[in-house]
Design a protein around this nucleic acid. Structure first.
Lengths: 120, 120, 120, 120
DNA sequence: GTGGTCTAGACCACC
DNA sequence: GTGGTCTAGACCACC
């Protein structure tokens, strides 16, 4: 059994920014907060924020211009991929969890659909 | 933004036992590990395990016989309810997450289905 | 034969607060003492007080706002129920005790009434 | 607030024997268990039992014949008094408790009566 | 050996 | 300051 399932903070930061991207709250080419601003806002050590920004740079998600700041990539295909990736991750772990409760694929679909109708 | 999304250990214990129940790894009426055994196995303080057991008692999930141990409830309806509950929780948070990525209900179903086929 | 009939402290705390509620010394919605204050006042470990408070929370007797304190429920029906419950408990154990002394129901009523008149 | 409402063991012993007397489980003149037997049976220190027996002797409840044992008094009036006393104690504390919940004498009688009918 | 209660005290999140 | 979680460990009752 596993205790303490919290993800490292720098990964949580990346995840969050990806989400904002996918939802259009951040647009291609847009300048994002400076590392210092960000660190202060979420009350986290600046080194942690730096790691998150560096990692996103490596992923091609943002690019940094010295002395000017950090900007969202303009590569729209990349943005599409992020959306798919995040969705696939969610779906996979959802299916795995449901199967571990003993649900077959067909039942899973039925249950999901039923839950959507309930909400209407 | 939220950092540290790890659930309390006692809740994780409860969640784990529920899962075993739903999957039939624990049967109605069966004796489960003593608090001390369990604590040693998962390397957690006995008091933490006790809190989990007590909470499960209040939920009607188990019953405790002093000096004899803790036993899974024989109430099969309760076991059914746990399965539904856990499924509904999973489904709801899955749907919410997908919607927050910008997916409509219909798309969600399609994506889930597609992912199931990929796995075949 | 049973020796040591003292109830656990946390139950005594709950019982006491219920009593204050029923008697109107605590009002619906009212903030009650913080766990630490209470613990200091009655000279008991804060964890014991916390257990009492948590149990009351589960009973729906109080609700807790993180960082703000613990408040009596506003549910007036619940308060009514507590009064009935406590009365019924008292009456039942009183009747049982009297019967174990060999009194019939009718005699019990007569004796109770007589004792009330004596006090006048 | 008071914590730990357990009565001293020797008083509990006396109370228990009184109860048996009142209920006719012990008869006037009857020999009761030796202090040693009693102590062993209820797993209590012999000194505690001795104190209980001595106190009952002072109350005139029993008399001890050296080398023969301890005997219930033959004084039947005394037995009557014990019954009344115990009943009055129960009744008084019952009434006090009910009043402290906010019940008037009349309501108390009604509630007691109602509870008796429920049991039928 | 089983669970039940309690203390002492640390550390955390939220206000 | 508020409550929430967790550890370490004592002592108890019942089996």
């Amino acid at each position: 059994m596993e205790f303490d399932n919290s993800k490292p903070i720098y990964l949580q930061i990346i995840h969050n920014i990806k989400k904002k991207l996918v939802r259009g709250e951040l647009k291609p080419g847009e300048k994002i907060q400076s590392q210092r601003e960000f660190a202060k806002e979420v009350n986290v050590n600046p080194n942690t924020v730096q790691r998150a920004y560096r990692e996103m740079e490596l992923l091609g998600l943002v690019h940094t211009l010295r002395g000017q700041g950090t900007f969202i990539t303009e590569d729209s295909q990349m943005l599409q991929e992020i959306k798919s990736e995040m969705a696939v991750d969610l779906i996979k772990s959802f299916i795995t969890e449901m199967q571990s409760l003993g649900f077959e694929d067909e039942q899973i679909l039925i249950q999901v659909e039923k839950n959507m109708q309930i909400k209407e």
